[in-house]
Each structure stands twice: as C-alpha cells, then as structure tokens.
Amino acid sequence: MTTATISEVVPPVPAPATAPQPGELTKDTYKGKIHPDWCPGCGDFSVLSALQTALFELGLKPHQVAVISGIGCSSNLPGFINTYGMHTLHGRGIAVGTGLKLANHDLKVICTGGDGDGYGIGGNHFLHIMRRNVDLTYIVMDNQIYGLTTGQVSPTSVKGMKTKTTPHGSVENPINPIPLAMVGGATYIARAFSGKQKHMVEIIKGAIQHKGFSLVDVFSPCVTYNKDNTYQWFNPRVKILEEQGHDPTDFHKAMDKGYMWGDEIPIGLFWKRTDLPTLEDLEPVLHEGGPLAYRKLGIPEDQAKALIAELM
C-alpha cells in the first residue's frame, strides 16, 4: 500500500500526564488528546476547563458522555475533551445531539457551539429543541462575533458594532438569547462568563443535572476579533444573580434580568422549572428496554403476522 500510516507521519500522541487506573477518575481523565489551538487568552479555554471540572465533580465517566458541536472556534471543543464527541456541521450540533440522545438516553449529551452556530445558522433547531425539552445541555460560547471566519458580524453582535462585514457599524438588532429561551420554553436558562470560571462550573453542573433542556450562554471573549466586548469590558459589568438573591422560579423577574444590558449585566441562573416532563419521559418507546441503540433488531413473529394481516 502506498498510503502512509499515522505513525510514519506524526509522532505518537503523548499519553496523558497521569494514566489513571481503569475506573479511577481524576481531573486529567477529561483531558483530550489534543491541546486546544485557540488563540491565547480566548474565552473558550475557560469554558473547556469549567466543563471538564463539572464532569469530574459530577463523577461522570467519559464514555458515558457525548460532547457534540457544530462548526466554529468554539465548536472545536469536543476535540479537546476526553469524552465521546462529534464535530458536526455548522449549526447542526443540537439536531445531531437530539438524535443521539433519543437513540441512547443513558448518555449525558452536551452540545457546544458558538453564537453564530446556535443563534444564526442553527436557529431553527434551537427554537424546536426548547419546546421539545430534550434532556441535554447546550453551552453557547457567545463571543458576539464570527471567530473562525475571522471576524464578521454575528446574531449577537451589538447594534453599531464594527466588524469586517459591518465596516460602518451593524444596523441590526442583536438576538438576546435569554428572553428568547424563556419564551421558547427552555427549562434551565443561565449565563456565565469566562472570567468567572468557578461560577461557571456551578452553572454547568446545574445544567447537566437538570432534567430537560438547559441553555448556558457564556460570554466567552474573542480576544482576536471582538475588541468591544472584552474581559475588561465585561469584568465590571457582570453581576452574579446568585449573589443578588434572584429567584429563578420567578418568570417575570427572570425576564427583566434577561433584558438587562449596559452597566449591569446579570450572569447566573435566570430561570429554571422542574415541573415539565422531558421529551424522553413523554416517549413510551423509551420507557422500557434501555437505549434504543442497544436493542435487539428484528420483528418478533407475532408482530410480523399482525403487520402482514393489515395488508390483507
């Protein structure tokens, strides 16, 4: 064969720093094979780290977790974490994630992506996953810019923002994901900030533990292409809802908080409800027999007879 094998082309991937015994979880367990290739200082490092910590603290085994993304800088995350992963198409992470979750509801499914990915090209899937209340967690690294394609306006770019495709400033209103998710029917709606990693860990843990669709919109600054919404810009503005005694079961207060922007921008858990069943709960097909993906194929004799009888 004329094709090169992997070992001839690159040095073998170094083994993780500590090689844990089977069954033993450490924080390093969740480290991926590849070191992230994000720009130094990119907010996405903090999200990755928070997610790894959350998985570790929740004691989730890597093979029981699937991290699924779309396309974008942020969407490269599944390559950097040691769980099952998929790096799908631009905007399609949550659609693929829904299929995967329904096919194997024993898995913890975490979708990750960017603002363009989730609120732009994938917007339709976003609307519908919320009303379905699929039990998965969606972490959007919202840098208010298209990072991977080198700095174009995004659906969350603020009005007036100058980008490569809005050289005179954007004239369009941005999407506000928090109120959008509230009217869309999401059952866990939170925001985090890459500059507050500890807080983010708690928010992500809450999201993963929540039964139903959880959205974590993260201010994850793009240090290369968004010179407006920087760490320095966010730092004095973000206010942690948990420290303000916000009641996440109060819909109207949550809406009010969601609309706040400017000198004070709330982060934390805006809204949570636990009274709604998930899609999986409502699907009798999943009630017995374990994950669909692992079930035996083929039609039992009596059912086959009944199907044929319908045609007679």
Partner: peptide
C-alpha cells in the same frame, strides 16, 4: 418500539438521523 419524530425541517431530519445512527 421505533422512535418516530416529525422534525422542524429536513436539515434537522438528516442531522438527527445521523445522530441516532451514530449512537448505534
């Protein structure tokens, strides 16, 4: 015992189908 879903659009359909197929 078949999971049957009417999805928001055909883009979603194929992506969900692939997710489910990937799961096995």
């Amino acid at each position: 015992g078949i999971m049957v879903r009417q999805v928001e659009d055909e883009i979603g359909v194929m992506n969900m189908v692939i997710g489910a197929a990937h799961a096995g």
